[in-house]
Structures are given as structure tokens and as C-alpha cells.
Design a protein around this nucleic acid. Structure first.
Length: 422
RNA sequence: GUGGAUGUAGCUCAAUGGUAGAGCCCUGGAUUGUGGUUCCAGUUGUUGCGGGUUCGAUCCCCGUCAUCCACCCCA
């Protein structure tokens, strides 16, 4: 049997109902904030991610699906959305001329990690990006948007962690302070952290190792190092969040795994994802557009993991989908009329189905039941002879016949609730 | 990349050193054109793959692959 590669999933119709519920809710909320959807490519030149996310990040250095095209150019399946959106924004002359713009996307991302609970190699995200202002209002709006989606999907309990990692200028002295603090306590660091100390000191704060965590409690805090402008920005983000009624927790140790963030960073976290804890995260990236060759354009955005949200939804039922009409027939000439009836219903936007090979009425009604059909239309010998169609309400079990040419209208009215069986 | 667990019917799982069962699902039936409940009957497996021990392995051992979980990292 042919199998799918590891960490990749098929999504069958029964799961689609919950899937649509999640993405539909996100789209609805995005629209209420005047964000507009765009579709970005699934692959980019490798450089887009290498430059965008940072060469030294784990995602770029060891988690990308990279291959060469026939011309020997290096392509990569996108591991996240922001770099692509920024590239598209900079490349599109019409959009980057706008004073500001609000975009959102939804689609698959790829990372060559070992799969586990809440972590796949092909997974889906929806995310939003705002371009064109460093006003802290927008930081709060983006966070508020994800909070609104979370509330609508009833994802509670979850927490919103917020921090500021300052601008590149004020991060330098902080990184130095962090380095010297950890260097003087290097004996208490785990192996991984010894490595982080050299490569990416900020990530020292993220370690889950007990002794490192204990050490962190005494570590220098970023809030003591950020410059006046960054502090003011951060305070105003928090002010807007409070005003918007978003309950959040300040976490001075929240750092992110991508190099492009400046100032605001945030994460939506929950206990219910096994080893993972974040189901959405983002922040501000004021330097990225310029780095991609555009004019200096401050921006802020986030991305959310759809499969992780699905996990949080658990057994919560999404609204179930039912078939409007199942058509039961007795074969032969009746099949032709049954097909015509189905066509007439579909013209009216009514979902109808039938089985041309159907045996007895019994098995056809069983199928109707399995499809959770609201109504059945019966086209059999009696109906053929009398020029009628019988309509059965599968909920009540009641049945009546109507003239053949009035059947489709009658059914349409019944499904809308404006008519009942005669 | 590292560590742990698990691989038996389509699904969820039993069982025993002597070539496997249950429930669900599916199909058919319970007086010939009527479902959801009930009852009856029936179909399905090279027990993940390869090797070893043994008279004999699904069960024991080794390898391999796959899946899951955790670390790393991240949505």
C-alpha cells in the first residue's frame, strides 16, 4: 500500500466540518477588522526565508524542505507566512505605495521536524500582517483580533503573554548583560544553553531545564534595558490592550525564535497541547520590509496553528452538515425521473443525492438515514402511475404525495420552513 | 538529531509456545414499496516486514520499518 510521508495528514470530510468552523471564524473576525485575504505561494527562493528569518535560527538551519529546481536555483517550501507576505508586499508596487495595509492568509506550512502531538511537517496556519505604522494601537489590534477569534471558538482556558524585546539598539546592551550574567554562572547551565550562550543568548530565557529556569529568576530583565521610546511604545500597547478588554500577562522572558522581531512580541498559550504550548504567536517587525528591499515600513503580525486549535476544540461539536433530500426510486423508468427530480432540486440550490444501483426501498432509506437527509422523495411505481412524488419528512416520519411538477417548489418551501406536508 | 512506548480484521481492542476472537462498521434478512431501535445471519486477517531460537511463534530474541509520545525547536 502506498503511504503518505511522516508528519503529513489527510483531512477527510468529517474533520472538515470543524476545520471550516475554525477557518471560517478566523475569516469572519479578520473581515470585521477590515483585513483582506491574500494567497501567497507555497514555495519561495530559499533566500526569502534565510534572509527573512535569520540564518542562525533553527527553522532555517535545520527545519526547511529545500530542493533545487531544474535550473539549479534553491527553492524552499515555506516554513511560515510572514516572510512570504513581506516579499509579496515589497514586490507588488501597488500595495507598497499605500500608506498602510491589512492582510491575512491561510494555508499550509512545512517544517522538517520530528512529528509529535500538535506538531506536523505539513501544518496549517492562518495569520495577519499590518504594514505601515508603528503606532502601538496596531499591536494591540492584532493581539485583540486573535483574542476575538479565540473567544469565538471558545478556546479558554488560555493566556496571552506579552513582552517587548526592544529595538536593535536597546537590545545590544541587554544581550551583553545577559551574556555576562550567564557566563558567570555557566557551571549551572545545561548543554544546550552553553551553546545558546554563543549563538543566541536571548533563547537562554526559553530553556525548560530546571536549573536553567532557576537561574533565569535572577537573570537581567529586558524591561530594565529598553530605551525610552521602546518603553513608551510598550506601555501604550498595554494601555490599548486594557482598553480593548484583552486580558494579558506580561512575560519579560518571552522571546521568539525568529530574528525579525522588534519591540512587541506575544504568544497565546495553553496547557492542553502536550509538549507544545503556543497556538498563536507574533510580534512587531519594523525592519523587515526594508531588509527585503522595500522602503522603511513598520509592521506587526501573527500566525496561529490551525491543527493546534483543532486539538483544543477536542470533542466540541461543530454544526453538523445534513443532506437536504435523498431520492428513493424503483429503478428503470423511475430512475430517469429520479435523476430529473434531483436536477430540478439542485437548480434551486438544494442538495440532493440518489443511488442508481439502489436495490430495495429499505436499503435506500438506510442510505438516506446515513446521509442524515431531512427529506426523502419517493419515485416508485405508484408515483409513476399517478404522476406524483411522495415526500417523506425523515424527522417525523410523515409522508404525503404531491403532483410531480409541484414537488421541487414544495420541497424548497419545506426546507425553508415555510411549508409542511399536506 | 536524541530518548521512551506501541505495531493483531476497515475502526477500537482481546488471546495463547501448537497457524486467532469480540464489539463497532459493512452486507443481507425478520410475508413481497419505507430509515433511525431490536433480533437473526454473513463477509474481512500472509497477527508491520526480515531473520533467529524451537518439533512448532502472533506470543521469546535480534534487526528493520512505521506510528505515537517526550526532548530539541516551534504555530
Amino acid at each position: 500500500m502506498l503511504k503518505k510521508p511522516p508528519g503529513i495528514e489527510d483531512i477527510f470530510p468529517d474533520a472538515m466540518e470543524k476545520w471550516d468552523h475554525v477557518t471560517g471564524t478566523a475569516r469572519d473576525v479578520f473581515r470585521t477588522y477590515n483585513y483582506k485575504e491574500l494567497i501567497i505561494p507555497v514555495m519561495e527562493y530559499t533566500e526569502v526565508f534565510a534572509r527573512g528569518l535569520g540564518d542562525e535560527t533553527d527553522i532555517v538551519s535545520k527545519e526547511m524542505f529545500t530542493f533545487e529546481d531544474r535550473g539549479g536555483r534553491s527553492l524552499t517550501l515555506r516554513p511560515e507566512g510572514t516572510a512570504s507576505v513581506v516579499r509579496a508586499y515589497v514586490e507588488n508596487g501597488e500595495y507598497n505605495r499605500l500608506a498602510s495595509c491589512k492582510l491575512f492568509y491561510c494555508g499550509p506550512m512545512f517544517r522538517a521536524e520530528r512529528p509529535q502531538k500538535g506538531r506536523l511537517r505539513q501544518f496549517n496556519q492562518f495569520g495577519a500582517e499590518f504594514f505601515g505604522s508603528e503606532n502601538p494601537y496596531h499591536d494591540a489590534e492584532v493581539i485583540g483580533m486573535m483574542d476575538a477569534i479565540s473567544r469565538r471558538l471558545a478556546l479558554a482556558p488560555y493566556a496571552v503573554l506579552v513582552n517587548s524585546i526592544g529595538c536593535p539598539d536597546c537590545r545590544v546592551p541587554y544581550t551583553e548583560a545577559l551574556k555576562s550574567f550567564y557566563t558567570s554562572h555557566s557551571a549551572r547551565l545545561c548543554e544546550d544553553c552553553a551553546r545558546r550562550l554563543e549563538k543566541n543568548p536571548l533563547r537562554l530565557l526559553d530553556c525548560k531545564n530546571e536549573s536553567c529556569r532557576a537561574l533565569r529568576a535572577e537573570a537581567p530583565v529586558i524591561t530594565a534595558f529598553i530605551c525610552g521610546a521602546c518603553r513608551d511604545h510598550h506601555d501604550r500597547v498595554k494601555g490599548h490592550l486594557s482598553q480593548a478588554g484583552v486580558s494579558f500577562t506580561e512575560d519579560p522572558f518571552l522571546v521568539r525564535g525568529l530574528d525579525y522581531y522588534t519591540r512587541t512580541t506575544f504568544e497565546f498559550v495553553t496547557e492542553r497541547l502536550g509538549g507544545q504550548n503556543a497556538f498563536a504567536a507574533g510580534g512587531r517587525y519594523d525592519g523587515l520590509v526594508e531588509q527585503f528591499g522595500g522602503k522603511k515600513t513598520p509592521a506587526v503580525g501573527f500566525a496561529a496553528g490551525i491543527e493546534r486549535i483543532l486539538l483544543m476544540l477536542g470533542d466540541q461539536r461543530a454544526p453538523e452538515r445534513r443532506l437536504d433530500v435523498y431520492i428513493v426510486h424503483s429503478g428503470g423508468d423511475a430512475l430517469a425521473l429520479a435523476a430529473r427530480t434531483a436536477a430540478a432540486l439542485r437548480e434551486r440550490g438544494i442538495a440532493a443525492d440518489l443511488d442508481p444501483d439502489a436495490g430495495g426501498f429499505k436499503s435506500q432509506f438506510k442510505k438516506a438515514d446515513r446521509e442524515r437527509a431531512r427529506l426523502c422523495v419517493i419515485v416508485g411505481e405508484d408515483e409513476l402511475r399517478e404522476g406524483t412524488r411522495s415526500i417523506k419528512d425523515m424527522g417525523s416520519g410523515e409522508q404525503a404525495s404531491v403532483p410531480a411538477d409541484a414537488a421541487a417548489d414544495r420541497i424548497g418551501a419545506m426546507l425553508k420552513g415555510s411549508a409542511s406536508l399536506p
